[in-house]
Amino acid sequence: MKRPRLATLLTAAVLALLPTTAHADVTYPDPQPVTGQQIIHDPTVIRLNSGGYVAYSTGGIIGARTSKDRVQWDDAGNAFATPPSWWYDYSSTADPWAPDLSYRAGRYWLYYAVSSWGTNHSAIGVATSRTGLPGTWTDHGKAFSSETTDAWNAIDPALVRADGRLWMAFGSYWTGIRMVEVNPATGKAIPGATVAHLATRPDAPYAVEGAYVLKHGGYYYLFASYDACCAGVNSTYRIRVGRSTSVTGPYADSTGKPMLEGGGDLVLASHGRFIGPGGESISQDKGKDVLTYHYYDANDSGTPKLGLNTLGWTRTGWPIAL
């Protein structure tokens, strides 16, 4: 990993001294330079036990990228050679969205959503692999689902462990971000488990999605993408965060405004050519937290591309992109 530039270090130092406010006027950092296959959407990245990195993303049959150094990325096909048949129950084109990649119990776990635009007839699937590489995944079917009678949307999964238990954040429009407990043995939601409510917006269409929960110090941090994606240079995605001492909330920003009332500190927003950052996930690499996301490149007709930034932490315990 390259050392931060002097300007980045100075920005971090200044931010550490700022009062804890959700409205600090800051300049957002550019993503770290990457080469090779940069086109990606809703990325999730992990450093493999065997060495190198793999990224999975929306598009095709869960698109795959590999890298030796987290800088040069190569196209590696898809997670699956063919779509599992049950996907067609939720998408006529069997097009999966927003994967989440993690490692536990000697296996890599891949969660993903299958749905169609504009409906909450959706499902989250789960697959496992010993290596984490494309072409090695065994699909285990649905981990959780939603129907048009539900007040939530089962897309954008993200797993987190808390106090010896396993939880999955998920959700989108249809009242925002939710969370359900998962059986660690099966990787699937516990039948009848309470669906907690973590974040929403005050007004329809409740535009908050793409959740990721990270434990740091004594808090759980809920990152989410606010506003609209998928419109190229017209996208308005931005990444916000709140925190809680409990994984199921309540989450609030640095001013104390609850995320259930639209609160959330800005972590990253559009700047320069980097439009609509979101679809985020976070991984640990060499002792650092790494924020992974897509942005739309204003210098390349709004093409979605890979964004990577190290996360720093202020002395008051709030994340900043470096």
Rank of each mutant, 00 (worst) to 15 (best):
I124M: 10
S235E: 12
Q37E: 09
P83K: 04
P191N: 09
A98C: 02
S283E: 03
I46F: 08
M259W: 02
A269N: 14
F274S: 09
A151K: 00
V54G: 08
T316F: 08
Q38K: 13
T93V: 02
I40N: 01
T44E: 07
Y295K: 02
N234E: 12
T58W: 11
G52D: 11
R273H: 14
P258S: 14
P29K: 11
T316A: 14
N183Y: 07
D30K: 14
T200G: 00
G164N: 02
G217Y: 01
D30N: 14
G263Q: 09
I155D: 06
P99S: 11
V45M: 15
W167G: 06
N234C: 09
A55T: 12
T138N: 08
R201Y: 09
E181V: 10
V14L: 13
L268M: 11
D289A: 06
R315P: 11
A81F: 00
G187C: 07
A193N: 05
R201P: 06
G106L: 07
G276R: 03
S122W: 01
I239G: 08
A185S: 14
L9N: 03
S85R: 03
Y293A: 00
E181T: 08
T236D: 06
W73Y: 13
R165P: 04
A113K: 06
P202D: 07
A22H: 10
T310F: 15
M1I: 12
A224C: 08
D42Q: 01
G77N: 06
A79K: 05
W137G: 12
A193H: 10
K305I: 00
G125R: 07
A113H: 05
A13F: 03
G132V: 13
L15V: 02
A24M: 07
P184Y: 10
Y173C: 05
R161S: 00
D289W: 12
P4H: 01
G210T: 04
K188W: 12
T310V: 15
A207S: 05
T82K: 04
Y251C: 08
R238Y: 15
T20R: 01
L9R: 04
D25S: 08
G307P: 05
T186M: 07
A7T: 09
S67I: 15
W73Q: 07
A169S: 14
S301N: 10
L291E: 02
S270V: 03
D297N: 15
P4S: 09
S172H: 05
T138C: 02
